[in-house]
C-alpha cells in the first residue's frame, strides 16, 4: 500500500495540462478524483512518474442542458449528480447510476470523467452512457473532438483517448418526451463493483410502443457492452412482458463475463437477463409516467 515515488504537477489551465501531457507522454497520468488511480498506485499496479492533477482547472464541473444535449463537465463529482435538480427530475438512469457507485465518501471525490476514462468494464457509468448514446469530448493539442461512446471503450483499461488528450465533457442527447431509464446493479455489498449491472433507457409513444431503446451492461465482459441486438429488437414493439423477456435474453447473449469470486460466468449471464428485465420494466414504468 506504499506507492512508488512520482512527481506531482498541478496545472491551472487546460492548455497547461495538455502541454504537460505532451511533455511526459506515457509517463504521466491525469488525476481527477483519484478513486481508481490512487488505489492502483498504492498496490503498485500503476506507477506513473508524473501525476497531473486537473482539479485546479476551473470550468470542468457543470451539469447543464444546451443545444439539445445534457452536458456534464468531466470533473463533475458523483455527489454533484446526486444533488442536481436537473438530474433528479429528468435523468433517472444517471441518478440511479450515481447512487449505486461506491459509497458517499468515494462519491464526494470520484468524477464522471474519471469513471469513463479509466476504461474499467466494472465501473457503472460506461453502461449508462452506452444506454444513453452519449458522446465523449476529448481535448488535445489540436482542440476538441467528439467520440461516440460506442467507439470509446477499446479494451480493458484502454479507451479511444490519445495519451495527450483529456476527457473534458460528456454529452447526452436530450431524451424525447415519454422517456425513462433505470439502472440495476447486483453487488455483494455496498461499495463493491457490480457482479453485473444493467442500464436501460427507453422512449415510448402514446400507445406504449418503443421508439428508442438503449441497453448497457456493466462487468459482463472485457469492455462495457452495448446490447445492440436487444435494443434493435425492441424498437417499434410494444414494451410488454413478453418482449421485455425476449430482449433480456438477447442482452444475455451479448454478455461474455468470466468466472470469479462474484460467481461463475453462467450465473452472471443469467443475471444480465434478470436485471435487464427489471431495468427495462422500471424504465418503461418511468417513461409512461412522464408526460
Amino acid at each position: 500500500m506504499i506507492p512508488k515515488a512520482f512527481d506531482y504537477c498541478r496545472p491551472k489551465t487546460l492548455p497547461e495540462a495538455i502541454s504537460l501531457l505532451q511533455q511526459h507522454g506515457d509517463a504521466a497520468k491525469i488525476l481527477s478524483g483519484g478513486e481508481s488511480l490512487i488505489p492502483m498506485m498504492k498496490m503498485r499496479l500503476a506507477q506513473p512518474e508524473y501525476l497531473i492533477d486537473i482539479n485546479q482547472i476551473s470550468g470542468l464541473e457543470y451539469i447543464k442542458e444546451e443545444d439539445g444535449y445534457l452536458k456534464i463537465g468531466a470533473l463533475t463529482r458523483e455527489a454533484d449528480l446526486e444533488a442536481s435538480d436537473l438530474i433528479r427530475s429528468k435523468y433517472p438512469l444517471i441518478l440511479d447510476t450515481a447512487f449505486s457507485i461506491a459509497d458517499p465518501q468515494v462519491r464526494n471525490l470520484a468524477t464522471v470523467g474519471g469513471n469513463l476514462a479509466h476504461g474499467d468494464p466494472a465501473n457503472d457509468h460506461p453502461a449508462t452512457m452506452l444506454a444513453l448514446n452519449a458522446e465523449v469530448v476529448a481535448t488535445g493539442p489540436n482542440g476538441e473532438r467528439s467520440i461516440p461512446i460506442k467507439e470509446f471503450f477499446v479494451s480493458l483499461f484502454t479507451t479511444a483517448l490519445q495519451p495527450n488528450e483529456i476527457l473534458t465533457e460528456i454529452r447526452i442527447p436530450a431524451p424525447p418526451a415519454k422517456s425513462g431509464g433505470a439502472y440495476f446493479k447486483l453487488e455483494r455489498k455496498v461499495g463493491d463493483f457490480a457482479t453485473v449491472g444493467v442500464a436501460a433507457q427507453v422512449a415510448v409513444d402514446a400507445k406504449g410502443v418503443c421508439q428508442q431503446a438503449g441497453i448497457g451492461l456493466t462487468n459482463a465482459g472485457g469492455t462495457p457492452i452495448k446490447a445492440e441486438k436487444a435494443e434493435e429488437f425492441l424498437r417499434g414493439k410494444p414494451l410488454d412482458d413478453g418482449n421485455i423477456s425476449q430482449a433480456a435474453s438477447l442482452a444475455a447473449d451479448d454478455a461474455h463475463p468470466s468466472s470469479d469470486l462474484r460467481g461463475p460466468a453462467e450465473y452472471k449471464i443469467s443475471m444480465v437477463r434478470e436485471l435487464t428485465k427489471r431495468a427495462l420494466t422500471k424504465a418503461v414504468n418511468r417513461a409512461s409516467q412522464e408526460r
Binding site: 447486483l186 455483494r188 457482479t195 462474484r262 460467481g263 461463475p264 450465473y267 443469467s270 437477463r273 434478470e274
Partner: peptide
C-alpha cells in the same frame, strides 16, 4: 453467496 443459492434454485428448477 447469491450465486450459490441461485445454483441450487436452478438445479431445483425454481429459477431460470
Amino acid at each position: 453467496s447469491p450465486w450459490k443459492i441461485w445454483q441450487i434454485l436452478k438445479d431445483k428448477g425454481v429459477t431460470q
